[in-house]
Structure formats: C-alpha cells, structure tokens
Design a protein around this nucleic acid. Structure first.
Lengths: 202, 202
DNA sequence: AAAAATACTGAACAGTGTTCAATAAAAAAA
DNA sequence: TTTTTTTATTGAACACTGTTCAGTATTTTT
C-alpha cells in the first residue's frame, strides 16, 4: 500500500500548508479580521479547497488553539528544573505573562476568543486541561511544603490563574490606558510583583 | 426657536430609539452577531437611517460601553455607606463579579471586545477612568489605615482589578470548564474568597 | 407658492463563511 | 492500454455583513 500511504502524506502536507497560511494570517490580523479567502490566497489556492481539508473556520482555530497551548507548556516545562515548587510557581507566572506579551494573538486565540466548543472532553481541548493540571500540581506541592494552608487547592489554582490572566487580558484588549503607568511592560511587571508579594505572606 | 427645539428633541428621541434597539440586540446576540440590519429591523426602520444618527457601529458600541460603566458605578456607589475602606473594597469585588455574571454582554462590551478607541482622553472613555479612580482611592484609604504598606497604590490597584477581572474574563469567555467545580458561581465565589484571604494577610 | 433643509428608504458595493456542480488529475479496474 | 472510479481543486453562487448614496417624501424657511 505505498500509494495510499503517499496520498495520506500528501493530504497531511496540504493540511499543514493551510495551517501555516492560516497561522500567518490569524496571528497577523486576529480572528475576526481573518477570512477564508485571505488564508487561501496566502497559500495560492482557492478558498473552496480549505473545506475539503477542514470542516470550517472553527476547526482551523482549534488547531492553532492547540498549538498555542503546546508552545506555552513547552516554555513552562523549562522551569521544571527548579526544585522549589513555590519558586517554580512564581517564575511560571512571569513566563505566562511574557508569553502573552510576545504572543498576543496566540493568547487571544487561547483565552479571549469566543469558544465554539464547550465540553473539555473534546479532543484538542485536552492540552488546556493539561496546562491547568500543571498549575494545580504545583499548588499542591506548595501545600505539602506548608504554604497556602487551609486553602482549597482547586479554588486557589483558579484564583492564581485568574490573577495572572487578568493582567494579560487587560493588556491584550487594551484596557490599560486608564492607569498612568509609563509602559504596559512596567504596569504588568509591577502588578504581578504585587501579587507575588501577597502570595509570599501566606 | 420652538421648532428647532422640537426638531432637536425628535432627533434625540430617534437616537434613543436606535440605542434601545441596539442594546436589546447587542446584549442578546453579542457584538459580532449584531448587524446594523438587525438593529434597524428591531425598531422597524431601514438600516441606512442609523448612519444618519450614528457615525458607525463603533459609535453605538461606545454608547453602550458608557452605559455599562455607569450601571456598574451605580452599583458600586451603594457601598459608599460602608465606613471601613477595606470592607468596601472586598464588597466591591463581590459586586463587580456579580455584575459580570448578571450582565455578561455588558461586561464583554466593557472589557473584552476589541476597542476601536485607544486614548483615554476621548469623550466617553472618561467614565472608565472614573471607575479606576474609585478603586484607586479605596486602596489609598486602606493604606492610610495601615494596610498594603510598602505597596505602590497604582500597581496594587491594577493587580486587584486584574485578579477580579481575570475571574470574570474566564467566566465570560467560557474558560472555566477545565476546573472540576460544580458550577461557575461556586468557582468564582470561592476563587474570589481565596483572593480576599490573601489580601487580609497583608 | 417656491426653495431649501431634513429624515428616511432601498438599492448598490465590496466584503464575509460556506456549499456545490463542474473539472482536471491520478489510481484502480477492465 | 483503455475505461471507470476516486480524489483534489476550482470558481461561481448563496445568504449574510458594514457602509454609502442617489432618490424621495416631508417639513421648514423664504
């Protein structure tokens, strides 16, 4: 079955070609400003063919959604060498914020775009659950070392993600102008530092 | 000049009529799913006439944006009777979260939709600045009573808003499914409680 | 009564996501 | 090798979008 094998590989290549074009346009223009015709012309094909390889725009979105999470997780896993879970947690927040700053459009796709899919059992959503588990286990490790006692680890993890996400979300949606800080970088860095100082008191 | 006066009043009424229709459709279907034709048919007019009273869709958006903030501020001002600024701050967060839950679409408009206008000097953006000042002055009051010492009030205010906004943003964009909590309400309430407990330690 | 200003309509333009008949190319069957 | 079947691609079409604008009816001013 050498032919069907090659066929499958070619199909996979076309899928990847579309995805590459889509990534470029998506991350350049954002979700709403990206049209199927844009993507198609980026790779010099007609718009119709995309529907032969993907169900709809939403499926392409989910593929990039997955990409974003695996990129973020890769950057977070670098911190696994840190032995102290609290240090890992604090550095993780900083990495998370930096990821949002450097990959604003990925971040939008991952956390701020209207999600067509709701249930986390869905394929492709798995990796988001993985990221949450990563956070959750760090919190539990901290608790084993005596930190964050009397806190429910689930709710506490949610709170930590919320605090960090809030910083990134205000940044990504340009809601920082009301603060008289010089730059966004400064505001985010010092804002996160405030949060860390709170965590350290517990 | 009784006629031009009446004319102006009629024009104002039409503006309000469009705004009422727009609010209904906007808050029912969200920003992207609302079309000018939807709004027009809601009030039984042609789509074209909207452009006689409003510059574009964005201007209508900003009008509702303003409405949302004044509604939120009204709810927050109820807490002005609380003498202790820290109690006011904590209750303020709870009111903020409740506002997001009860006015998901207003919240989206206010904090999560792509903003066409960037500079806070713009008319209509004023009220957002007012809300931030409200938070900022509460923090400073707390500091005068000995809380949150050695923290910069500007960055600390940003951090508080971020933490609360993060909770609401995850909720509004359906990013809570990865947590195994029973309901969103429970997750948000206990998540915020965790944050409050952190604040109380400082 | 004539002219001017105002409020509104509906058609049009260029764009969107998506579908689908036609077609070209390649693989399988004869 | 020729014919049939399968597969990949196109481009036109459909129903939608925000926005513009020539025309029209109504009302105010001259």
């Amino acid at each position: 079955m050498g032919i069907t094998e090659r066929k499958q590989k070619e199909k996979q290549e076309m899928r990847q070609r579309i995805l590459n074009g889509a990534r470029k346009v998506f991350l350049q223009n954002g979700y709403e400003q990206t049209s199927m015709r844009n993507i198609a012309s980026e790779i010099s094909y007609s718009a119709g063919v995309i529907y032969f390889h993907f169900k709809d725009k939403s499926e392409i979105f989910h593929e990039l959604h997955k990409e974003g999470f695996s990129l973020l997780l890769k950057q977070l896993r670098v911190l696994d060498v840190l032995p102290d879970p609290f240090e890992r947690l604090k550095a993780g927040g900083r990495v998370f914020i930096q990821f949002a700053q450097e990959n604003k459009d990925y971040y939008n796709l991952m956390f701020l775009v209207e999600e067509p899919i709701k249930n986390p059992d869905q394929s492709g959503f798995q990796i988001a659950v993985e990221a949450i588990n990563h956070l959750h286990s760090m919190v539990k490790e901290c608790q084993e070392l005596g930190r964050f006692k009397e806190m429910d680890s689930e709710y506490f993890s949610f709170m930590i993600l919320s605090a960090i996400h809030g910083i990134c979300a205000l940044f990504c949606k340009d809601r920082t102008a009301s603060f008289h800080s010089k730059t966004n970088d400064e505001l985010m860095e010092h804002g996160y530092a405030c949060f860390v100082r709170l965590l350290e008191k517990d």
